[in-house]
Design a protein around this nucleic acid. Structure first.
Lengths: 225, 225
DNA sequence: CCGAAGTCGAGTGTTAACAGTCAGCAGTGT
DNA sequence: ACACTGCTGACTGTTAACACTCGACTTCGG
């Protein structure tokens, strides 16, 4: 799972944990698409383990919402309906609003600088039209705020949520105008944060996250990638 | 296995699902206290199944935060430190604030009436000093708001969170003055809701949930029940 | 040609046994 | 008395095999 190479940390993970990490990465990085079936026997042979650890890994993934198990009929990679997608986005809004509110009074000068740098990188990527670089910096920006909240449970739930949402990317979000708007919304959040106005920053973040929601609401089911 | 008697619903659940339900109830209803060990062999014998389903059930509970598994050293019912308790409460604040914001524009006259009735029941229980009745109505009040939000994922996470938090009850919350204050905060939320002022209602709910947080923050670790 | 009952196979749910690990304890040496 | 080493038992992690379910295909009757 994203091995930080050259780390001779002796891998003391149990088998099911490694299977879990493998499957999770396969799903999050899109090699297993929504709807794909997870056959226990096939996976067991492919990975060289028995079905026990496979089942435990799949159970865990199901509990986190990445796969759906239909009792006696096998597991499939979960696919989200438009309604489910919107619901998850509302939860994200709730969590991230709270994260900002908690983070603002705790932000160090160093963290503020990092956030500013990340937003500058996004502005630059938007100017070049480099969508991938934009989204990467964007992810870091939001992740840094979550980290700065100091609430580990909040971070954990947020990461889990992103895992489910991240596989779906709205085309309309890659428009250049949309990218630029996103940058200026971030800037406004940072201005409020520098003033120490947590309530205002949180409010702006909530509105910022509502933008993709409105876009998604206007889409047909099929357009959800 | 913990059959809800006189429910002839043909139980088509798999074994591990029933074990899961049994253990979950044991934990939530306090028969298994935080720190208690969950020995696989003992449970298997006690419930008349093999260790497989037991392991799957425990894995699921771990994923939901009700138990902690220490690899190769068994599972124990999770106990929360003061810091973890506070973190979870902040997450609850985030979710419930969002629930109210979503619920207010959707509330039917029927639901508003139910909420008013529940709050009246709480006022009456507070007057009598009937703490149990108070908390029961209080739970229903909050649950109804979550339901009215129309967001199933939000409800699911909320219930999961309550499962973790519910086992710890702060003594200071049972003081009569605290109960009365809670009732009037609910009333204020309902007034804002009737006006259709979602933002204000959400704000009041957030503050309402911050009260127990402040109480908990002032406590020593041991006093957390 | 169409529908219903029967059969078969693939795959999941469950079990029992094997293998390895960790905590605790006894014993030895300093 | 104390620390360290090596054993032992209990328990978890994993495996392979058995049992049963459900879907798909075949077959038979109308």
């Amino acid at each position: 799972m994203a091995e930080t190479a050259s780390a001779p940390v002796l891998e003391n993970l149990t088998l099911w944990e490694r299977v879990y990490g493998y499957l999770r990465a396969e799903i999050l990085e899109g090699r297993l698409e929504p709807g794909a079936e997870l056959a226990e026997v096939a996976l067991a042979e492919q990975l060289g383990v028995s079905r026990g650890p496979i089942r435990e890994a799949i159970g865990r993934l199901a509990s986190e919402g990445l796969v759906t198990v239909r009792p006696r009929r096998g597991a499939v990679v979960r696919s989200l309906s438009k309604e489910e997608f919107l619901e998850l986005y509302q939860v994200r809004e709730a969590l991230e609003r709270m994260a900002v509110q908690l983070a603002v009074p705790r932000l160090t000068a160093e963290q503020l600088k990092q956030l500013t740098t990340l937003n500058a990188r996004m502005r630059e990527a938007a100017r070049r039209g480099d969508v991938d670089a934009f989204f990467e910096a964007n992810l870091s920006f939001h992740a840094l705020l979550l980290e700065a909240s100091g609430n580990e449970k909040l971070q954990e739930l947020y990461q889990q949520l992103l895992g489910q949402l991240g596989r779906y990317r709205l085309r309309s979000l890659t428009l250049r105008g949309t990218l630029r708007r996103s940058v200026s919304e971030h800037a406004a959040i940072l201005r409020a944060a520098r003033r120490g106005d947590a309530e205002r920053a949180a409010q702006l973040m909530a509105e910022h996250i509502r933008v993709p929601q409105r876009r998604a609401k206007a889409l047909e089911e099929a357009e959800l990638r």
